[in-house]
Each structure stands twice: as C-alpha cells, then as structure tokens.
Design a protein around this nucleic acid. Structure first.
Lengths: 345, 345
DNA sequence: GTTAGCACTCAGGAGCGGCGAGTGCTAACA
DNA sequence: TGTTAGCACTCGCCGCTCCTGAGTGCTAAC
C-alpha cells in the first residue's frame, strides 16, 4: 500500500524531529512545530496508521514515536531532501583541502579528520586499492651490499616498494640477471597468473639466483593481489556526543569494535556495490553484529579506472542522513581530484 | 620526615587495595585483609598521619582513603615490587612476537595490540625516529618518464623513499647529473648543514637541473630532520573498563584527546628523559591539560645507537603500575630485538 | 473526515528514611 | 607510652513512594 502524501509529510516531520532531538516525537509537537494544517488528534490517527504499517515504533505507551529501521529506510530512499552545506562549511572544506599533499597517508588522515569535523561522526577511510592489476615493471635498487629496494609498478600506475635484506652480499650481476629475467617473463601478468607450477619452473630456470628471485617475486605477488584493505579510522570518540551512546557499555561495545582495523575493514568490504556513489546501511542491514543500532554511509571514490576506495561515516541509526550524504559527496569529489592528481598518470 | 616502616607497609597496603578495587580503602579492611598484626584503630591513627603528610586523601568524611598523587609517586619510587608476569602471559607474548615481520607498520601495530591486550590499557607506540643523522647516499630511480623514486639512506642505515612526479619528461642524463652532484657534495651532511645560502649556491651551480635538484634535496632534508613523530594508538577503548571513566563526559574528554595523533605525540615528546628505561608521570606531572587523573608509563627502545622510539600506556592514576612496568619492560626488549634484526645493519 | 475532550498510562524526578562503611575521640589496658 | 576496644557521629548510597507531565487512544460532536 502506497503512503498518502499526508502520511509522507507526517513521517518526514517525525523523522527529522527525532534526528534533531533524539527524543520520541509526540503528535502535539508535530502539530505545533510543522505547519501541516492538521490538529494533533488527526496526526495521532495517522501516526497510529504509520505504526501499524511498520514505519514507526513506540518505546513505551506514554512516550511519542520513533522511526523504525523501515522508517529510516523509507526516509532515505524517498523523503530525504538533499541538504546543501552552508557557505561556511564549504569555505572551511576548500581551505583545508587546498593544501598540497605529497604523501598518501597525509591525504587520507586529513580527509578523515575533515569528515569527522564536518559530520561529527566517526569516520572510516579506506586506502585506495587495486583491482586485478597487472605488472608493468620491477626495479631492484642495491642500496648497500646486503640491502636492496624492490620497486614494483603496476599498470594502474601504482608504485610500491619494499626493503629486502640479504644474509650475504649480493652483487650487481645477480641483480641484473633477476631484473632482466623478470621484465622478460613476468611483465603483464596479474596475481592469478602466478601458479605454483610456473613459479617452480622459474626458480629452477634461474639456478643460482633462485633465492633472490624468490624474494622479489613474492613481493611482486603481494603487490598485485593486495587484498589487505588498509583503513584509517578517525574521530571515533565523536560517537559519544550522541545520547544513544551515553550508556557506558554501549559506548565500549562500539569503541572496541572501532579499535580494530580488521573489524572495520571487514565491515567496509561488506558494504559492496562499488558502482553506486553512496550506499547506506541502516541498523541491522549492515549484517555486522557488534554494531547494534548504528548506520553506515559509504561513498566510493575512484582514481583512474583501476584504483578505488571507500570513505564513510558510522553513527547511530538516528543520523542526519541528509547532511552526511551531501558532506560525503562533496568531500568524495575533492578526494578523487586530489588522488587523481597525485597518483594518476 | 622519613616514613616509619609501619607507615610504609600501611601505605603500600592501601595503595594496592585501591588499585585492585577502585574503592576508597578503610582501616578495617586493611586490618582484616593484610596480616599486619595491628588493629583497625591503630591503622586509623596511622592513616590520619599519612593524610596529614599528604600521601592520602579523603573523598568525603565517611568513606575510606585514597592515595594522593604524592602517595602514588612514593609508591612507584619506593614501595612497588617488581611484578613477574605469569608463565601464561609470557608464553602468549612469545607466541605472537615470534612471527616474522617485514613491514615496520605491522610490527608497530602488533606490538601495540599486544601491550593493550596484556595491560588492558590504551597504548601508544612511537615509530622509530632518527637523531641527528647524516646522509649516506641518495639514489634516484626513474620509474616512468615523468615519475621517479628518490631513495635516501642515512648513516643510521635507515632507508626512506618517495615518489616524485614531474610535469615534463626527465631523461637519464638529468638524473645522472643530479645523482652524482649530490653524492659528491652532500654526503655526510646533517640537516643543520642545509643552510639557505648553501642551497641557493647549489641550485645555481646546477643550472638547468636546478629544479630537479630542488625536489630531491628538499626530500633529503625532510628525511634528515624528521621531527614529525609518527605514533600508533591502540586499544583506546580499554580506558572504559576503568570505573574512573564511567562518566561519559570524562570518557569523551579522554578519548577525544586520544583521537588526535598530534596530541599524543606531543605528550610523548614531553616525557623526555631518553636515558632512563622507564619513565612514569603521575597525574598532573605529565603537564598535559586534557588528561586529568591519568598516568603515563613510557619505555624507551633503541635500534642501534641512532634510532630510538617510545612505547607506553596511558591509564588512570589508579593504575597497576607494577604490572604495567614489567609488561612494558619485557615487550620493550622484544621490540628492540625485532627492530634491530629488521633495521639494524 | 476532522477535531475537541477526557480518561488512562507510564517514565522520570523529587523527597525521604534507613543502612552501613568509615571516621575520630575517649578511656582502658599492657 | 603505644595499642586497642568501644561508641557516637557523619554521610553517601539505595530503595521506596509519590507526583508530574507528556503522550496516547477512544468517543462524541462538528
């Protein structure tokens, strides 16, 4: 059954009031504060209907109503109006974001702080990650007798490097041999191509240099597969500004979840749907246990067509979705820009 | 005035009881639970003395006593007995620490998690940092036409690198020229040697390659000065296990302090005294405002003789100092070992 | 269909009294 | 003189009751 226009208006009013005040909303308040041209009694009737239909809940008989998860879902999908940030917000954002960055880490942490500051919710930013990338080139730089730097470049233009320490001195000829072997045989391969059989063959073929090759190749594989999604978590304590978390056990449950990057990165990966710009999971929709009554809003960013990542915020189900969505959209655009300039070809 | 042996025993009993229970300690309890051979009345008299002398405080008339900051300080300096970790603790530690690490980041975060797990307090680990290091060598690796990797090696054996993107193609001759210029003129210099005058001269001398040189040199300087102490913060939510922080405002104050790496790294740097193995700041001793009634215990670790860092925990002044100190000592040893193996020459 | 009125519900806060842990003082004892 | 038992006193905490007020649902009138 479709919701009548009047029901929609009332539902929206209730949800927005509840988002603003965190207190159950009564019919009288709606009648007074929103100019709907209806008396409290009429609104009461409509509210009873909305409750029957599952959009509202009563915490107890004599309190007002609060939105159910289904109510929030309907709000987010159909009622929510795009919120425009104030000029002040935007100016502040531009200001901080216009700095020059040269370290990925610095960009990510700064972005996270900004989101926290704007939304007043805990923030999660995933580092950009590669999709099925292929090897473009490998360089081995001998730094000292027993220390080399292995530099891997993928076709997404991403450069990774790692120090490798050897137990005995390595000479240039070994390095050269391995380098040219790799560029001849491995260029253009993706992680899936590194089958055990192929690797064995390779190690054999290289004879004396097998050991060195092994070290280098295993790092190359690491770079190409790269499924360990690194995340940056910021502003976790912001959650305590919400009365939902004024209970200390509740707060601890949330914060100890957020203390673990693994938890958070797992949760992010469950958010799926990389095609949509913004995805929202309300309460139990996230499918994560430790996170009762919290919602997650995530935006996907892309760098070129091979790199992507996610930025998001986590807050109570009673969240200012409209504001969060527009903030995320805006910041996401700027982040994509910065990263494209920084990492793009 | 010196404390009598009896007063010392009583003070120790009170502090240890208070650490264990977080509740003001009364004379009767001491008489009952500690076999001091004294009646409650006697202990009462001694407690009154200890209060007069400043070692104890009364939250209100009819509660027991709690230690003052001065009381804790005396305890830490003179009364505290070295605590030995249980066999189980140690086994657990060895177990996790025996993994092979090859990424600094992984070591640091793992160490932090372990300390949190053992002590149940929030943890802070500073990344190893260099002291007045000198330039050993610089390599510039051209990765693509307009992308190079600059690798800097200091005399502490530390290798840092950074991607540099150019607006126009750079050819090998430029790279070679700059490389050899640097190795001829800058080897052995420390950050202080890079005076503006000298730099200007250099840039001029290089003529066409001045731009490239500028980029490389500024990164070299960055590596040599390196005062931005990176820190890893773990287990912050552990603070909520302590009844001192069951008040939500208190918890928020603490956690929002911990949300900022800058705050924490600044606080760490105030801990000073890199010669001592362990340093302890109790309550206001830390000189940091946002951290009422918290204590900090920090251990210094060294890698070779040029690199050092700090690991520490932060908790309520009512902290199990004995356990924390021994845990930190033990973990610190293992960390030094791992890092020396990993980064040492 | 809308609204006014009314009886009913129920969480939250204020007020109050009793309990008990703890103190300080005094007087007796070794 | 130091130690201890006894006792009056203090005061935070807990649980109880009562009251208030916001909010509901129903009914009857417009």
């Amino acid at each position: 059954m479709e919701l009548s226009q009047r029901k929609r208006m009332i539902l929206q009013a209730i949800i927005e009031d509840y988002i603003a005040t965190a207190e159950p909303v009564g019919s009288r308040n709606i009648a007074k504060n929103h100019d709907l041209g209806l008396s409290a009694a009429t609104i009461r009737n409509e509210m009873a209907d909305l409750e029957d239909m599952g959009y509202l809940e009563k915490p107890h008989t004599s309190a007002g109503r609060i939105p159910s998860e289904m109510g929030y879902r309907f709000y987010v999908d159909s009622l929510m109006q795009r919120y425009s940030l104030t000029a002040q917000d935007i100016a502040g954002l531009q200001n901080t974001l216009d700095r020059k960055y040269d370290q990925l880490e610095a960009v990510i942490s700064e972005i996270s702080d900004i989101i926290s500051k704007v939304t007043h919710y805990p923030t999660v930013v995933a580092f950009p990650k590669e999709n099925k990338s292929r090897l473009r080139s490998v360089k081995i730089v001998l730094v000292e007798e027993r220390l080399a730097l292995v530099v891997v470049v993928t076709d997404a233009g991403v450069v990774k490097n790692k120090q490798v320490r050897f137990s005995s001195a390595v000479d240039y000829s070994a390095i050269d041999a391995v380098s040219s072997f790799i560029s001849k045989n491995l260029t253009g391969l993706s992680a899936a191509d590194f089958t055990p059989a192929r690797m064995l063959l390779m190690y054999d073929a290289m004879g004396d240099y097998g050991e060195l090759l092994k070290v280098v190749v295993s790092f190359v594989m690491e770079c190409l597969s790269e499924d360990s999604a690194r995340v940056y978590i910021g502003g976790a304590s912001n959650i305590l500004n919400n009365p939902e978390f004024s209970d200390i056990d509740r707060a601890r449950e949330f914060l100890s979840f957020m203390d673990s990057r693994e938890n958070v990165s797992k949760m992010l990966s469950l958010m799926g749907n990389e095609t949509e710009d913004i995805s929202i999971k309300i309460g139990s929709e996230s499918g994560v246990d430790g996170m009762r009554d919290t919602s997650i809003v995530v935006a996907n960013y892309n760098v070129g067509d091979k790199l992507h990542g996610k930025i998001g915020i986590i807050g109570p189900t009673r969240m200012d979705y409209a504001r969060v969505v527009s903030s995320l959209e805006m910041i996401n655009d700027r982040l994509s820009e910065i990263l494209n300039r920084m990492l793009g070809q």
